[in-house]
Computed example of a mutant assay.
Amino acid sequence: MSKGKGGNKNYKNKADYKKPAKADQNYSQDEEIRINKFIAHAGFCSRREADTYISAGKVQVNGEVVTELGTKVRRKDTVVVDGQNLSLEPFVYLLLHKSKDVITTTDDEKDRTTVMDQIESATGHRVYPVGRLDRNTTGLLLLTNDGDLAHRLMHPSYSVRKTYQVRTDNPLSEAQLEQFLDGIELEDGPAKGYNVVQFVDDPHTFEMSVFEGRNRLIRRMVEFHGTEVTKLKRIEYAGLTLKDVPMGRWRFLRQNEVNNLRKMVKLETLDFNKGN
């Protein structure tokens, strides 16, 4: 279990900040689609979650409440979910290198800096974080208005890999790190780490992958050994890395990256050349 430290790299391809892999949702004004699909493709939530909003009477179409799950709507209809007016925007996908002390939410009642502040004016479309990084955790965060993709990436059944660089207050021994590989028991069930690698020149620091998204999972796994995380950074998510993206900066995902994510969670790929 050894690893050397690599140096930081400057962002080289600045065009990636400006060239989104946008996929237009190729629905005509009069084409009928199921309302849960409309809501998901508007980026509000997943189709399954949309069904819950519909059943609860929180969805209006052209001013009328609808509760029938099979209801079909058209692109030109006015669809409001829980007070929010929705429209079918082109799908947009961003990768953000989140800074410390930034909140993973679209707004904050205490007026603290959010991830949306870090991508302000990035796009004319509303996007949402895929999962969460806590305030003191830095690193890779995806944002998109593709509701189906976001939901599946976060769903435990798809076992999306997340890799973290972890610095601890007290160094963990090789035996303790190997316990992560074998699995440890937390208060909400067993937890297991993968590809656990300790830095050669810094015994306080190691890397570890997990395939879960439980709250504070890495921090709680470290606390299992009687110490605390002093620095936590997500360096990889679903095969994507922070290469060439400095702290606090972002880039659009490339077309092949978007389709690799969609294939990973068993969604159809998008034909960007045809605008769908």
Rank of each mutant, 00 (worst) to 15 (best):
L172V: 08
K110Q: 15
K100L: 14
E32P: 01
G189I: 01
G43T: 00
R219L: 05
E174I: 11
M208H: 05
D16M: 05
I103M: 12
K192D: 08
P129L: 12
K14F: 12
K76G: 03
L186G: 06
K18S: 14
L240M: 11
N13Y: 15
S121C: 08
R220M: 10
L95T: 04
M247A: 12
Y17L: 15
G248K: 09
M247I: 09
N256Y: 06
Y53S: 04
I35V: 11
K37W: 03
T227H: 10
A238F: 12
S46R: 04
Y11P: 07
K18D: 14
Q29D: 15
N13E: 14
G70R: 06
S46Y: 00
V79R: 02
G7S: 11
F211T: 05
K243C: 00
E207Q: 13
S2T: 12
E223D: 13
R262M: 03
Q165N: 11
E207T: 10
Q29P: 04
T230S: 11
L94G: 05
K19D: 10
G147E: 02
T168K: 04
N13S: 13
V196H: 00
F211K: 14
V81F: 01
Q255C: 05
K19I: 13
G193P: 03
S99P: 02
D271Y: 02
T67L: 05
N26F: 09
N276Y: 10
V229S: 09
E187T: 11
D16R: 13
K274E: 10
G70Y: 08
A122W: 13
R112A: 11
Q165L: 12
D202N: 12
D202L: 03
R34M: 02
E68P: 07
I119V: 15
N276V: 03
E109C: 14
V127G: 07
N256M: 04
T241E: 10
E228P: 09
L242I: 06
G147W: 00
Y194D: 12
K274C: 00
D188I: 01
S99N: 12
L253N: 06
D188N: 11
V92K: 06
R135Y: 15
L96Y: 09
E207I: 01
E268V: 05
L140Q: 13
A175V: 11
K110H: 15
S157N: 05
Q118A: 11
R34Q: 07
V245M: 07
A238W: 12
W250M: 04
S55Q: 15
E178P: 01
E257H: 12
G7Q: 07
Q165A: 04
G139Y: 08
D16L: 15
V200M: 05
N136A: 14
L267Q: 04
N85P: 03
L94F: 06
D101C: 10
K274W: 00
I39Y: 00
V160G: 04
D30A: 06
N215Y: 15
V197S: 09
T269Y: 00
R132G: 09
V80G: 01
A175E: 14
R216M: 08
L69G: 08
E49A: 08
Y164V: 08
R254G: 09
D77W: 02
D16K: 13
V102T: 12
A21G: 02
S28C: 04
N145F: 03
D101H: 14
G6H: 12
N136T: 14
E187G: 04
H225N: 02
R74V: 13
G43Q: 03
V81M: 01
H97M: 08
Q176V: 02
G213S: 08
